[in-house]
Amino acid sequence: MTAAVAGGRVDAVISRVVEVMFAFPSLLLALIFIAIAGPGLATVVAAVGLGSAPGYARILRVQTLQVLSSGYVEANVGLGLTPARILGRTILPNVARPLLALATLGVGQAIVWASALSFLGLGAAPPAAEWGTMLSDGRNYIQLAWWIAVFPGIAISASALATSVVGRYVQRRVEGKV
């Protein structure tokens, strides 16, 4: 939002940083972050957020530019409202709804990424229960006790599917199609 509202050099600098982040695949960006910060639950959460941030940043910038060029923002400027009030009362609510719908769709992807990083041993410490860690541990016993690996895999898939279905519903609701 800052890039779109400020424009000029600020927009150029922020846009270039986001483009550099886009140059790396999201999961690779998360792995690089974990390699620098070290493994752990908080690091995985931050890494997944960092990996998905460029997409959200670009969408947020475009949405903000669309709202800024609308007539009701120009009317608020004409009424003499302060920029902070215009940002908080007009721009932010109109940008937040589509972004909220997109974020609910991204939760399923975040679950899969966090599980993948835990599967690789980059998640929380072993006493913590994580689906990716359970899946990794269960693969050693797949022939003797298949349920050790199958049930965490089902949980990961079901959670990702459920959040994606909810995200699609929220997206259609925001767009006014439901």
Score class of each variant (00 low, 15 high):
1 M>K: 05
1 M>L: 07
2 T>E: 06
3 A>H: 00
4 A>E: 01
4 A>N: 03
5 V>K: 09
5 V>S: 06
6 A>W: 07
6 A>L: 10
6 A>Q: 10
7 G>T: 09
7 G>I: 09
8 G>I: 06
9 R>H: 10
9 R>C: 03
11 D>I: 08
11 D>A: 08
12 A>C: 00
13 V>Y: 05
13 V>I: 15
14 I>D: 04
15 S>M: 11
17 V>M: 10
17 V>I: 15
19 E>A: 04
20 V>W: 03
20 V>K: 05
20 V>G: 04
22 F>D: 03
23 A>L: 03
24 F>L: 04
24 F>Y: 01
24 F>E: 10
24 F>S: 01
26 S>P: 01
26 S>M: 01
27 L>E: 09
29 L>G: 03
29 L>P: 02
29 L>Q: 01
30 A>C: 01
30 A>N: 02
30 A>Q: 00
30 A>V: 03
31 L>T: 07
31 L>K: 07
32 I>G: 02
32 I>Q: 01
32 I>R: 00
33 F>K: 06
34 I>R: 04
34 I>A: 00
35 A>V: 04
36 I>F: 03
38 G>K: 06
39 P>I: 11
39 P>M: 12
40 G>T: 12
40 G>M: 05
41 L>I: 09
42 A>H: 09
43 T>Q: 05
45 V>F: 05
46 A>V: 08
46 A>F: 02
47 A>L: 00
47 A>D: 04
47 A>E: 04
47 A>H: 00
48 V>G: 02
49 G>H: 07
49 G>S: 08
51 G>A: 06
52 S>D: 11
52 S>K: 05
53 A>T: 07
53 A>R: 02
55 G>T: 11
56 Y>Q: 02
56 Y>S: 08
58 R>F: 00
59 I>C: 04
59 I>S: 10
59 I>K: 06
61 R>G: 04
63 Q>I: 05
63 Q>N: 12
63 Q>D: 06
63 Q>H: 07
64 T>K: 10
64 T>Q: 07
66 Q>S: 15
68 L>G: 04
68 L>K: 05
69 S>E: 12
69 S>Q: 14
70 S>C: 10
71 G>R: 04
72 Y>V: 08
73 V>L: 11
73 V>N: 08
74 E>K: 15
74 E>A: 15
74 E>V: 14
75 A>P: 08
75 A>C: 11
76 N>Q: 14
76 N>F: 06
76 N>K: 11
78 G>P: 03
78 G>S: 14
79 L>Q: 15
79 L>N: 15
80 G>F: 08
80 G>H: 11
81 L>N: 15
81 L>W: 07
81 L>I: 11
82 T>A: 15
82 T>P: 03
83 P>R: 11
84 A>H: 12
84 A>M: 14
85 R>V: 14
85 R>E: 13
85 R>Y: 06
87 L>Q: 13
88 G>V: 12
89 R>N: 08
90 T>P: 01
90 T>L: 05
90 T>M: 07
90 T>N: 13
91 I>M: 05
91 I>A: 05
92 L>M: 15
93 P>Q: 14
93 P>V: 14
95 V>D: 01
95 V>L: 14
95 V>C: 09
95 V>K: 14
96 A>Y: 12
97 R>L: 15
97 R>A: 15
97 R>N: 11
98 P>G: 13
98 P>C: 13
98 P>K: 12
99 L>F: 09
99 L>W: 10
100 L>T: 15
101 A>M: 10
103 A>H: 10
103 A>I: 11
